[in-house]
Write a protein that binds this DNA or RNA. Structure first.
Lengths: 237, 237
DNA sequence: GGATGTGAAGTAGTTCACAGCC
DNA sequence: GGCTGTGAACTACTTCACATCC
């Protein structure tokens, strides 16, 4: 493959969060039968400026062709590699209430770079059911994995986190509004869905949004700090 | 009222996103029967540094007492006011698949500053059902509101957004992985849940990770090396 | 003493402007 | 001509260090 000009610098956090979006757009382009895309269109369709797109992609290597934009296939391949899509991670989902079910049934969530290997719950009414092709097991049967996605109530989150640590799972994606205590060496990435609405309400009340003289177009990634919502440039048409 | 200490500067985006977290911690403190909290504890329990807490809160006014920390009730009141919790916004949720149901049933999502006034879907199998105390109506009946929460598939998102604009809804919280085109004056806040897992996977593969370095809720900091020759001593606490 | 609030310094990220290459 | 890649300028956010006040 054309991996020769891969540079792999250290990528910034906002850049990492934008790569999945670029990839989605690139895939749409490929499905649409086109072979190339330029930074202006990619930026427009991803909701960011063209300069940001070029800066982000330059961090992966010299992927484009001056005067002609980017080859969609190259982008897809290089972004995928940067995100680790060439080798799948084993993922378990714990808690199959509405949120857990929403995630495992969602088309985009567990497709790339992640392989769902197990579903767990404490509720006997759910254990034994088949969801997304997997039988829900008791949390007591928890097997090891690379990542655990916690979709349990806040009150249960710490106990479940402890259980994960016990099962040698060292990366947790936590959807419960509860800060977890884990030993050093275990990563926790928190996502608090309620924050998103709160932020939107703040802007509504304070007129920071549409009234500020531009379209408020922000991409939020949960609690992970991207929050790049400068309402200056208007990225779509 | 002693509203003299309110300052209401312009708050930064990261600060706004942290306020709901502070508020949650403060409520836990109040429920626990305590009257005061200092920036160190608030920071620890929110997953940020004490300095960041003080900087954030100073943006709301002079809320603390030097030498004695913050009064929990004052914090609750001032943070709530900053987020607009004193007056509720009318919110509708469109799309009651698993995600939509997860949100409306979630304890923290629609409680503060938001009043759920309607649920809408296109699916006849769902229309008419009662969820969280509301009868699901057809999207064609869509009434006006302050905010619409879109929990529909990506393929339907643009059509639904158009419908919202038609219904004079000028703020959209979009959970579909699809950039929406809306006229000027309408705010869109995107939330892409799949990004969260992708970012976590990136860090896992690159070892950058576990250290949540710099992420908002990085209470869980695993040591990592960062590989930098100079990054020897871990300055965290 | 003890903790806040804040100028100053430091760091990170974005945007500008243009050189370089197709 | 067109578009990428990038130094330089700019902006935003965080952290340090300490004056300030209870």
């Amino acid at each position: 493959m054309t991996t020769s000009r891969l540079r792999r610098r250290k990528l910034s956090e906002p850049t990492i969060a934008r790569l999945p979006i670029y990839q989605r757009v690139v895939e749409e382009v490929i499905v649409g039968g086109r072979a190339r895309i330029d930074s202006v269109e990619l930026g427009t369709r991803a909701g960011v400026t063209a300069t940001t797109v070029r800066r982000d992609l330059a961090g992966l290597g010299t992927l484009g062709t001056r005067g002609a934009g980017y080859d969609a296939a190259v982008l897809q391949s290089c972004i995928g590699e940067a995100l680790g899509h060439d080798r799948d991670c084993d993922v378990v989902v714990i808690g199959l209430g509405n949120l857990g079910r929403a995630l495992v049934n969602s088309s985009g969530f567990l497709t790339r770079g992640a392989r769902l290997i197990g579903l767990y719950d404490v509720d006997d009414a759910v254990i034994g059911k088949v969801i997304a092709g997997h039988v829900v097991q008791s949390i007591h049967e928890l097997a090891t994995a690379s990542v655990a996605v916690l979709c349990v109530p806040a009150s249960a989150a710490q106990a479940v986190a402890d259980r994960c640590v016990e099962a040698q799972i060292h990366a947790l994606l936590n959807f419960a509004p509860q800060v977890l205590s884990v030993p050093l060496g275990t990563a926790v990435h928190d996502v608090d869905l309620s924050i998103e609405l709160q932020v939107l309400l703040y802007h509504l009340h304070n007129g920071t949004g549409p009234l500020g003289g531009g379209l408020l177009h922000s991409l939020a990634v949960g609690a992970s700090g991207l929050a790049g919502s400068s309402a200056r440039e208007e990225p779509w048409r």
